[in-house]
Structure formats: C-alpha cells, structure tokens
Computed example of a mutant assay.
Amino acid sequence: MPRDATATRNRIVKTASRLFYGKGIRAVSMDAVAERTGVTKKTLYYHFRSKDDLVTAYLASRDQPNIDLFAKWYAQAEGPLPERIRAIFENIAAGAANRRWKGCGFLRTAAELVETPGHPAVRQASLHKKRLEAWLAEVIAVEHPDQARQLARHVLLLLDGAFSTMLVHHDTAYVLSAGDAAAALLRQPL
C-alpha cells in the first residue's frame, strides 16, 4: 500500500476509534466516519470493505497499545507482585475518573455484537483478552510458575468485572476493590 494510502487508512482508523469508543459502534455510521475523517465514502470503502472490517480494525489498533499500557503501569509500580498488579487497577481507576472514560472498548463492542458471536470484531476482542491473559500469566509466573495461568485468568476476571461494574455504577471504588482482591489472591495463591 502506498505511503499516502497507509496514512489515510491510519487516519480513518484513528477517527473511527474515537467515534466508536465515544458513542458505540452501532451509533456511528460509515457516513459519520467519512465526514469526520474528511474522506469520501468511496475512499472509506476502498480501505474497508464494510463497517464490520472497520470495527475489527478499530479493535486491532487498540490491542497492543492496551497491553503496553498495562505493562507500563506494572513496570512503574513498586513492591512485590501483588502490589504491582494492584497498581494496574489503581491506574484504571484514575482513568475512569475522567468523564470521557467509557470502559473497555473490547467488552463494549462484544456486548453490542452479542447476537453475532462469530463476528470478526468479537474474535478480535477475544484475541485481545487472551493476549492480556497471557501477558498476566507471564508476569505472575515469576513468583507462581505452577499457578500462573489459573491466577492470570482470575485477575483477568477481576479486571473485566471491574470494567463492567464501573459502567453500571460510575464509582471507582469498585475498581480499587477488585485491585485489592487481585492483590490478596496473589499473596495467598490457590
């Protein structure tokens, strides 16, 4: 793909990401994405055959940056493993205090597509969650090699539960409580 075409595609994904995250995928039309990006619908459909492709690209563009952010928070935290994992939850709580925070885009997209479980964007959301779980298992394995996969799954469930509960209550105390539970779990493994 020529450099100009790649730049245009990236601009479309960046614009779609802001719109989809802010309003939800069902509420945002391809017309709105084209208009906000400043491209024609023909250009939009040159880069993405369908809205489904664009929604999938939106989630794919968020995959590694999200994992990198979790890894950054983990690396910047001080203390043993439980405190470093708790720091991830504390950083989520700090972000959730911002009025523009809308939760986990992967979970929200999967919820909007609940009636189409084979949708490529749902598969992309699943892939992201599996990659996040694998990263958690990696960091947990340093202290708990035999239980890393199971503990990572428990921490992921606490993360996703915290994201979901925050959407309902808009109270960061739930994320902090989930962080406390994750830290306790890692101090006293199964």
Rank of each mutant, 00 (worst) to 15 (best):
Y46F: 08
N66S: 12
C104E: 04
Y58K: 07
S61L: 07
R86I: 00
G103E: 01
N98L: 13
E83L: 08
F70K: 04
I67T: 09
N98A: 15
F70T: 13
L107P: 05
W73L: 12
D63V: 12
A77K: 01
A77M: 04
A93G: 03
L69D: 11
F89L: 01
F48V: 03
K72H: 00
I85V: 10
F89C: 05
H47N: 12
E112A: 11
P80G: 02
T109R: 14
C104Y: 02
K72E: 06
P80N: 06
R49F: 01
A71L: 10
I67Q: 07
I67Y: 02
W73K: 07
L59Y: 02
G79P: 07
F106I: 14
R62S: 13
A71M: 15
G103R: 07
W73D: 03
L54S: 13
L69C: 12
E78L: 09
R100K: 10
L69Y: 10
D53Y: 05
A110M: 11
F70M: 12
G103T: 06
I92H: 02
S50F: 02
Q76M: 08
Q76G: 15
A57D: 11
Y45W: 02
A71D: 03
R84C: 05
D53M: 01
Q76L: 07
A93W: 08
G95F: 04
N91M: 12
N98F: 11
I67V: 13
A111C: 03
A110F: 00
Y58M: 13
F48K: 05
I88G: 07
D53L: 02
Q76T: 05
I92Y: 03
A93S: 13
L59C: 09
V55H: 02
Y46N: 14
E78R: 10
I67A: 04
V55Y: 00
K51T: 10
Y46H: 13
